[in-house]
Amino acid sequence: MNKKSFGSRLVAAPYYVWAAIFVVVPLIITAYFAFTGKDGSFTLSNMYGISKYGKSFAISILYAVIATAVTLLVSYPMAYFMTKLKISSQRMILLIVMLPMWMNFLIRTYSWITILANTGLINTFLKAIGLGPVQLINTPGAVILGMVYDFIPYMILPIYSVMTKIDHSVLEAAEDLGANGFHRMTKVIFPLSLPGVISGITMVFVPSVSTFYISQKLGGNKNLLIGDAIEFLFNNGPDYYNIASALSLILMVMILLCLTVMNRFDNGEPEGIIV
């Protein structure tokens, strides 16, 4: 080992310590609880116990997939049209997109109750014009809406930032070679913006699948999501730590698997992804 690498290790040391205390140690504790019984002895019974939560897993994944798809469908055209605007307008819209992120996530979710409730903003209006009331709150739709609303900036920003970097002359070249507007979108813009789409999907899907609170407030606790289940179990005291840890571990592994699959798309042969 030369001196230089020793020096750079010394500088990096605080970060290693930080990562060890706040990432590695909690992971080990989670794994420890997941594979031990109440008496601290090794057991796989927690793993068998999670089968009761199969429905929660399924609903969490389903909601997260729908929320991610909706977010993508809204964000992609939005990011595309943003790049067509004047620079000053682009900055303004970026600010508006990011503004809600400065507010606490719980407050943002809570505010939807006042909008969606049976006596809320929308239903008051619908009643006034004789169309309501309509059940909005405590429905799966409200939960997905909450997810889309909370996580949409994480989709728009990466797609937008990749799109602004697409060289305009490449689009002119495509047009020159016979590509109309539709072909320029499918054969050039979309493939070139794919890295942004992939990171957007990752950044929306991961928090959506593991989220809690949104379904409690907007879904009326009818369909327990896996994040809510974990929170609920931990809140019930030390007796439930083992099963809650097992659930957390499974969720983590699941997310890791998803990320691996996504990254394969991102790094794979570029022509492999083109329609």
Partner: peptide, 22 residues
């Protein structure tokens, strides 16, 4: 007539090759 309908092709100053294609 838009460029994609013209029997004319262009070689651009900085080539403008498609970075996602071989």
């Amino acid at each position: 007539l838009p460029p994609y309908k013209r029997q004319i092709n262009t070689i651009f100053q900085r080539y403008a090759l498609f970075p996602h294609l071989n």
